[in-house]
Design a protein around this nucleic acid. Sequence first.
DNA 1: GACGAGATTCGAATCGGTTCGACTACGTAG
DNA 2: CTACGTAGTCGAACCGATTCGAATCTCGTC
Lengths: 337, 337
Amino acid sequence: MNIGEIARRAGVSRSTVSYALSGRRSVSAETKQRIQAVIDEIGYRPNAAARALKEGRTRTLGLVIPPASLRLTDMQLGFVASVVEAAAHADLDVLLSPSGGDHDRSFERLISGRRVDGIILMEIRLEDERVTRLQQEALPFVTIGHTAHPQGTCWVDVDYAELVARSVHHLADLGHRSIALLNRSAELVAAGYGPAHRAQAGFAEAVVLRGLSGIELPCADDPAAGEEWFEQLRERHPEVTAVTTINEAALPGLQRGIERLNVAIPRELSIAGVAARHWAEGFRPQLTAADVPTLEMGAHAVELLLERIAAPTSAPRHLLLAPPISLRDSTGPARTN
Amino acid sequence: MNIGEIARRAGVSRSTVSYALSGRRSVSAETKQRIQAVIDEIGYRPNAAARALKEGRTRTLGLVIPPASLRLTDMQLGFVASVVEAAAHADLDVLLSPSGGDHDRSFERLISGRRVDGIILMEIRLEDERVTRLQQEALPFVTIGHTAHPQGTCWVDVDYAELVARSVHHLADLGHRSIALLNRSAELVAAGYGPAHRAQAGFAEAVVLRGLSGIELPCADDPAAGEEWFEQLRERHPEVTAVTTINEAALPGLQRGIERLNVAIPRELSIAGVAARHWAEGFRPQLTAADVPTLEMGAHAVELLLERIAAPTSAPRHLLLAPPISLRDSTGPARTN
DNA sequence: GACGAGATTCGAATCGGTTCGACTACGTAG
DNA sequence: CTACGTAGTCGAACCGATTCGAATCTCGTC
């Protein structure tokens, strides 16, 4: 079942088999055919480890995901799926590594054991020591999300600041004067999670620019928290006529809260946000939102990584995506008290 | 950065370094310490490909997931996460392979390139050619779910037939005489998807046993379909006083339908089911359901696979899990018209 | 004082591929 | 007719680890 066996059965040397397969040197049509026949018969495929050892590359990408204990969000899942698919399309395999703790054996194995040709990092923090680690190891990598100082790194991200700002402008255009931001959890904000911070910043800036009154309230990433968040909002800030959200996981709870308190959307309250299309369309009424293109992002990340692997010293590229806001049914003119 | 370099700097031979690391032969304390110092200084870790080549094992498991294009359900995601975590715990890496379509280059690479020591297969069909393929390749594997003829294979599964039957009995005990089964999608049933078939079978048997009137209606795996399903149920089968479901993804839609038609749970209608705890507790009122232990299942699958790798010829074991039904707030006595 | 056991170390072979240099045969240009 | 380029093939070296056999040295024992 190894290349020597193929060579023996085809009556040629091992190198000839190798050349017949790779095409790096010419092999006579007759010989090539004989070799192919033997291969088809036995169902031979070159041993990946041996090839990796000699070639110095593994044809494998590493994907660093948040640890399983934390529930992955729908969006994160979308990334994983799209990265795996894009990699498969380029005939590459994907090695998963849960990480997020500090000194991950799995993460270390991946990089210093040379198990992968490059790495895609998810869930980047504003300050992230894994990025530093990868830079010193000189292993090509791309991050989904970016650090506070992303110069010199490759990354793909959603421009949360811009998207939240746009949704604020959209709401302001509709006459809303008092808007609430349903942000991600307080823990994430405290841990320096980029999207939460940038949403905050974009919100604050747009609110000031339009002379609005804006309040920002974090909310844990789950339905129950979303429901509670909404109750508190209605109780403490009855003047708010519009909500903008980046917290997908809280949406079902928000929905429940709305129904329980019998608030009419968008007549009494408008809602805009940033969410995967899947979530936006699942909301009732359908959510006016910037649709996060998770599938494309994974594909872009793989594309950037392949570039980087091919030319490790090239100028690092990045992509900051700001998909347009899809107008659906959850936003309308502000109620005129 | 290879073992030769370590040996040179420590002034010993390469084999001594290897023995110092593996402990398979004794090495003097002094030498061991010197070698360790060099290793710590350079941050050396053995090259995974070289080790795999020589040892004949890769310390990697393959996880075959449904293709990314199909959205993974929350439960499937739970498996992936738990498998990765359990593998990491055993110092193993996990290679992902999307499969299920026909053009599975990725799947073939995995098995005939000897990239993994064993494979975990998700989303098994009653007749599944991948199982056959793995058997002929003599590669250890464990399936999550089982085929129609699971003799001789290792698997972990949820006993849908039993769980659905139990929920029917529970509802019958509460006086319900007319029960509907909210099954998975018609496509899955047609494609020979085990859980859907077994739920059907368990339902039918229990209904007959208790002399009930039971109707089984498939439903696509998404919220919108769940909502529509509920409307049709109320319209066409107003006599139904209880629903049992195995379709997690339809739950949010079911919830919306219930609220829209203003049906009181459990006063007017009882609902029981099989669902991850996360979903059951997210339902309003909280769902009486058998909690599918996704995290444990992944761990069990890895455990079985490791056994199988260690002793490929041992008698294949399997686990059929039937977690107890957690009584929550969605079931109550049948309404007495 | 020789001998066997065990500790410690080294050199060489091996895993299964890829690739370089060399060799043969055959045309073709000069 | 000679020189040379090229297609086709082979043998050997190499990638970076593990592991076997053998060599050396140190003791304790008879």
